[in-house]
Amino acid sequence: MKTSFIMNASARYVLWACVLLSLFVLLRGHNEPGGGFIGGLIGALGFVFHALARGAGATRAVLRLQPLTWAGIGLLFGILAGLPALLLFGEPFLTQQWLGATPIGTTVLFDLGVYLVVLGFALAFVLPFMEA
């Protein structure tokens, strides 16, 4: 398919802008609308745009790992976030823990896991279509 020069040139910037925005949305999610799910979708949007402009092969190169691998890493993060409670504090699995009085805790890791799974899931569906 023919792609426009503008799309081709802007693809990189749109991609990284989307990724930055998605990370912002991911992190603000605890207090304002946002979170891992929406963040992951926005991130996926950036990659889809990139793939439209430059082809799925180029996007896969940017991703480095397979989308499924990213999703797997995400699921691993989700499980890992639940382990400190179980192993260190004798509480049920997935009882979230915090670093002292700060709002930083295992929830960040958990939400990052959700983010990666959603991102990987969306791209695992979309990228093969763009290659077909």
Partner: peptide, 23 residues
């Protein structure tokens, strides 16, 4: 849960096991 966004707190903390199942 140190979060003001109740929706997200439910997702990542109160019902985190459900979310884990969903992902």
């Amino acid at each position: 849960a140190k979060g003001r966004n109740v929706v997200n707190v439910i997702l990542v903390d109160f019902r985190a096991l459900d979310t884990l199942g969903e992902i």
